[in-house]
Design a protein around this nucleic acid. Structure first.
Length: 494
RNA sequence: GGGGGUAUAGCUCAGUCGGUAGAGCAUCGGCCUUUUAAGCCGCUGGUCCUAGGUUCGAAUCCUAGUGCCCCCA
């Protein structure tokens, strides 16, 4: 960056900081504001000037100075605290000797504390008529343009602290994110789910088809993987008798970065004994509808210009039906015919590998021709067994499993299924995955012998769910990129 | 991995045909007791992303690279 220019502006403020140091403690820690801006607006917002003047109430606030307008012997300043903004009316002759002179040298961005009576200006704005004023923390770096804010996308991600200072929209996204997670916790706790924490560093990564990050523990001299999913540990807890568990935390996948993908991301996973995938669908629907209600007071939302109705019952349609629905030309009778599926994929210029069976080819065809069209909330059910190595096969049709994925706005939001609890069948599926891995598919699953041992003790029938929290936040905050809902998205180093 | 866009003052942005680098805000100095993108006067402030090339002369044209944004595999 152009350091010389920056240095000129910073040097000026550093000079001011030096003066503060000369006069005493430049970084005081004894400031305890008793009021917040939003409360003041709530309490006094309706009162007229005379009432305010007569009340005699004395308030104290502290926050970052976001605007400063000096007019000779009086000034206006606007400070922002965690709750919002309040204007300060500052007069030379109301303050102690010399304070006003100092105030004039303070900068927008400085953190100040003020006390005074409530006051309404001639133009009617609720303000504090300041009688005590302190500079609490000197800001050495100039803030962006007060009107345009910080709009450079790269700077917003790299210096999120500046983005948060300047852009209320950005602050709101992260408040919503927090509200969503709080809602999910409360919603699940109310149904008797227990929040647990399982290893993020795993000797055998499992629970998803994805490439893991590797790391190393020095003392044990062992290779570890950052988890790609918590699934296999959570199901060990079902074996252990914790029959309703959930975890909301980070998983890691060593894959590409896009508007939908960040290498570390947050999932809600839950497992529920004596439930099946249909129960899980109902729970998922309630959770997402309730989250929208909690954040917006409505389940009808707008996402990137698209109206989405989370209020109505979510559609449920099988993967195969969805393909024939959106591709009328496809022969419904040949959806499990590998040659036919390869031909259909060729026509759509979609790549596939020689070792793909009908189930995986079918899933590719779904992803290519259906997924993005599923705007309104839709559960796609009956995923092929071939692509569902941890799901329970359907009793009537072993080609598919009792599994669903939920799509909203053309994107996968959740994935759930009746869990495979037959240890011998699971071992067989792991072996098939291990063969794929041996063939060079580095996304294929590892054989997890301890997980099989756990299943051998007996896991009750159970349903499980994974929800991409980041994507759900995107949906509910109308954010186009996952980076907009991550406080510190991964970027290349500066 | 491929394609497109973008990069100029601290911030937000102009910059025509290749001919001395611009504005607003911020900073600095001055005026101002009811402003709210306060106003008025004056002054500062530049590695035009980087490295090459073409040219008498490059922010501008060419090549390569880098960051970010978007699309595609």
């Amino acid at each position: 960056m152009a350091d010389s220019e920056e240095h000129r502006l910073i040097a000026e403020r550093r000079r001011k900081l030096d003066e503060l140091r000369d006069r005493g403690n430049a970084y005081p820690n004894d400031v305890q504001p008793s009021d917040q801006a939003a409360d003041l607006h709530a309490r006094y917002g309706e009162q007229d000037a005379q009432t305010l003047a007569a009340s005699g109430d004395h308030v104290s606030v502290a926050g970052r100075m976001m605007a400063k307008r000096v007019m000779g012997r009086s000034s206006f300043a606007v400070i922002e605290d965690v709750s919002g903004r309040i204007q300060l009316f500052v007069e030379r002759d109301t303050l102690a000797e010399g304070v006003y002179q100092s105030f004039k040298s303070w900068d927008v961005g400085d953190i100040v504390a003020a006390e005074g009576g409530m006051y309404r200006t001639n133009k009617g704005e609720l303000s504090i008529r300041v009688d005590q004023l302190r500079l609490v923390t000197k800001s050495l770096r100039p803030l962006p343009d007060k009107f345009h804010g910080l709009s450079d996308q790269e700077l917003r991600y790299r210096q999120r602290y500046v983005d948060l200072i300047m852009n209320d929209d950005s602050r709101q996204v992260f408040r919503s994110r927090s509200a969503l997670v709080s809602f999910a916790r409360a919603h699940l706790e109310a149904q008797g789910f227990l929040e647990v924490e399982t290893p993020m560093m795993q000797p055998v990564p499992g629970g998803a088809v994805a490439r893991p990050f590797t790391t190393h523990h020095n003392t044990l001299d062992m290779q570890l993987y950052l988890r790609i999913a918590p699934e296999l540990y959570l199901k060990r807890l079902i074996v252990g008798g914790l029959h309703k568990v959930y975890e909301i935390n980070r998983s890691f996948r060593n894959e590409g970065i896009s508007t939908q993908h960040n290498p570390e991301f947050t999932m809600l996973e839950l497992y529920w004994a004596f439930a099946d995938y249909k129960d899980i669908m109902t729970l998922t629907e309630d959770l997402i509808r309730g989250a929208s209600q909690a954040l917006h007071g409505t389940a009808r939302i707008s996402y990137q210009g698209q109206e989405l109705d989370l209020e109505q019952d979510f559609q449920r349609i099988s993967l195969e039906e969805s393909i024939t629905h959106f591709n009328p030309a496809i022969d419904p009778g040949r959806l499990r015919d590998s040659d036919y599926l390869r031909q259909q994929l060729d026509e759509r210029e979609t790549r596939y590998e020689d070792n793909y069976g009908a189930g995986k080819l079918l899933t590719e065809l779904f992803e290519k021709s259906v997924e993005e069209k599923l705007l309104q909330p839709t559960f796609i059910v009956s995923y092929p067994t071939e692509v569902s190595p941890l799901s329970r096969q359907n009793d009537a049709d072993p080609f598919v499993t009792d599994r669903f994925e939920l799509f909203i706005g053309g994107r996968e939001i959740a994935n759930g299924f009746s869990e495979l609890n037959d240890p011998e069948e699971q071992a067989q599926r792991f072996r098939a995955q291990a063969e794929l891995k041996a063939d060079g598919d580095d996304e294929a699953m590892f054989f997890d012998a301890d997980y099989i041992r756990a299943l051998e003790y007996g896991m009750p029938p159970a349903g499980g769910l994974g929800v991409g929290i980041d994507r759900l936040v995107m949906l509910l905050t109308d954010s186009a990129s996952i980076r907009d809902v991550l406080l510190f998205p991964l970027l290349r180093p500066e």
